[in-house]
Every structure is written in C-alpha cells, then in structure tokens.
Amino acid sequence: MRFKIVSLIAAAGFLAACSTTPTAETSGASGDGAMTSPAGTAAPVSMDMSSQEQLVGIGDRAFFGFDKYDLSAAARTALNKQAAWMNTNRGVRVTIEGHADERGTREYNLALGERRASSVADYLMTLGVSSDRISTISYGKERPENAASNEAAWADNRRAVTVAR
C-alpha cells in the first residue's frame, strides 16, 4: 500500500519535472511514469534514477556469507520487498549485480558473483517477477563498496545489488 502512495507522489513529481518546477528534485519520476509513456520509447534518465532511489529505499541488496550464495532470512526479507515493488512497477527492468569480497581469486570470484546474482534473480522469479525483466552481471571482486581490508568491509562487499535499468 505504501508503495502505491509513493508511486502516485512520484508520478506527480514526474509531471512536475516536465514543467521544470523546483519540486522535481524532491520526488522525481517513477515506474508508473514508464507505463504512461508510449511503448518502445526510451524512458527519461531521471525516471531510472527515481526507480533506483525507490529500490534503495526499500532495500536494494542482499548480503551473503563467505564463499556462499544461498539466501539468508534477511536477504529473503529484502527481496520480498523488491519483488512486491517490481510487481507494482511493472515497467521497470532490473540488473542484479553480483559481487564478492577480496578474499578470493579473481576468476573464481567472477563465478561466485554470478551465482549470487543468479540466486537473487531466481528468487525474484519465484515471487512472480517475469524473467525478461531481470538480467544479471557479475563484477567479482572488482567493485567493492567498502575499500577496507577487514571482516566488516568484506561482509559489506559480499552482495547482490538490484539496479533499475
């Protein structure tokens, strides 16, 4: 329910953005905006930003144990919200970016990142998100979020992030 309200406000913001009023910054556009645009036309960049902001707001990522790709209860909770949001915002397509910490070798970590992204994609699909709206990419250990070399940083980096396209 809450998401619907957010969407409505955001849609209003999208219209505001078109008339370049200052309120555009505070809300931006939404996935609903994409549904109103004619099929086949490219969505404005600001709309993706907004989808992304919404994803970040509800939790855009799942975290994993060391050398693991199974989904923890916390990861499932975050993904349940993502799936609900995606089922509401049916125009949004996402890429799941799989990442690994630096405590593995480069090529194995590329495979591990892909596994993690795939775990998330599979789970979203079981919750009704169509497979053609989801793609995956692995960055292995190439794009850490936390640059420190300690357990906390490595836990931050073992993640799959859902990014609106």
Partner: peptide, 24 residues
Amino acid sequence: MTYAPRFSADGRSVIFAMTKNGNS
C-alpha cells in the same frame, strides 16, 4: 558471461569459462 580465457598450446583454439543461469 565468458571469462578466464587462455589460448591452447598450438594457438588454434581458446579455452574459457561461461556462466549460464549462475553456473560456470
């Protein structure tokens, strides 16, 4: 994703890994 490429010793082929549905 295709990755981890190396040439064969005779240079005629490339061996590599590919992921499909998360499996490499």
